[in-house]
Design a protein around this nucleic acid. Structure first.
Lengths: 213, 213
DNA sequence: CGTCACTTTGAGCAGGTTCAATCTTTGTGG
DNA sequence: CCACAAAGATTGAACCTGCTCAAAGTGACG
């Protein structure tokens, strides 16, 4: 499903490729209009800043994802790379007004709407789910987006820290840690080092995630 | 800023106008693809269903707003009219692939991105704000979207109930009520009946909303 | 092998929920 | 126009989930 090296985006629109090392790259985002980012390689997080060290991670974006950086909102948002990444920038103004909707435009719009869909899903999670449900919902989402099948179980290599997971799910690191410990004791997952998580019971996890499905 | 009677949307795209009485109109939404809704008149809410009477109101949409109904997400979403409304439906497939990007297309995309911006703002609110901050943030947003200036103060005629406010902000009706009472006692707002709220101290409200701004 | 950042675990606390009772608003029919 | 009913809103008291603060443990990298 991912766009390839000579992907449609750059084929018909004025994009700007950027290789970013792990870390911040806020300078690259224009503040005057909405920016659309396509992740060609790596992992990126979109962070909302509420002041006083309060952060809400609005989204994690992986290879092939599109991320819309909001403008004209009261919470300032910035982008950060969790790994060395290659991204393309695109101003929303350029998407339609220049004419020439090509093959890639529909795909791009689809991905923008997918981004919006994930945002709605996050709202439901933050507004109405318990800590247990949030963690399980997060693990299920990660499984679907970056899980690798490995003889039976699904393996996750999480590129984000406990703090970042907490800042995404509206929880503290302590609560994240406790919930993961609990899931480990229930044999729903197994952990190995800081970033690796094996999903032992995908169905159990989905049940605990508390969605309708 | 709102589109007018012969608005660009219908001028270049296959839309479907629908007059809906107050209440549900879920049947009208196709389940097979993402649906984009333009509110010509009235007020609409987008509801995410988490089962067991748990609801998250993802968005309220007023005249001139565009609302994207997410598809392919694990939380089913439905639309409801809070008043008699007139809305236009548009499938995302039809937006770009048919060619002919017209004047309205850019405007429409802008509004889709505005919808996404509001969704990000909501995530920040739900993930990281206290009950007090949520209520104040909500009032400030409503002030900006549907507030009417009336000799000095700004007046709101809220079309939603306390329950709906709670289901939007991730709070119970009791907490919403208590917070409003508290704001009334601090002389930040005044209430009149169930739906009318006068904003007496807009700046104070913004300060209590806890955004950076 | 030592250091530093990150993670885990524990104990006490607090903001918001739950449950229950009362009060207010709104709409309806006499 | 008033009385009544039903839905919605407010208030109170007890409780509970997740937070805060603190300390100990673990992994990653020089």
């Amino acid at each position: 499903m991912r766009m390839h090296a000579s992907h449609p985006l750059s084929a018909f629109l004025p994009t700007r490729q950027l290789r970013v090392p792990q870390g911040d790259f806020d300078d690259e985002i224009g503040t005057d209009g909405r920016t659309i980012v396509y992740i060609e390689e790596g992992v990126v997080k979109l962070v909302g800043h509420l002041g006083a060290d309060r952060e809400q991670i609005a989204a994690f974006a992986f290879e092939g994802d599109v991320l819309v950086v909001p403008a004209h909102v009261s919470t300032p948002h910035t982008l950060h790379a969790l790994k060395d990444s290659v991204v393309y920038f695109l101003r929303s103004d350029d998407l339609l007004l220049k004419g020439r909707p090509a093959t890639g435009a529909g795909q791009l719009l689809d991905r923008i709407l997918a981004d919006l869909g994930r945002s709605r899903e996050l709202s439901a999670l933050l507004g109405r789910k318990s800590a247990r449900e949030r963690i399980c919902g997060f693990l299920v989402e990660m499984e679907e987006r970056i899980g690798r099948r490995e003889n039976g179980a699904v393996t996750l290599d999480l590129p984000m820290s406990r703090r970042e997971i907490g800042d995404h799910l509206g929880l503290t690191i302590e609560t994240v840690s406790r919930q993961l410990t609990d899931l480990r004791e229930r044999r729903a997952i197994a952990t190995c080092g800081r970033s690796r998580i094996d999903i032992l019971d995908p169905q159990g996890l989905r049940a605990l995630a508390g969605s309708v499905d």
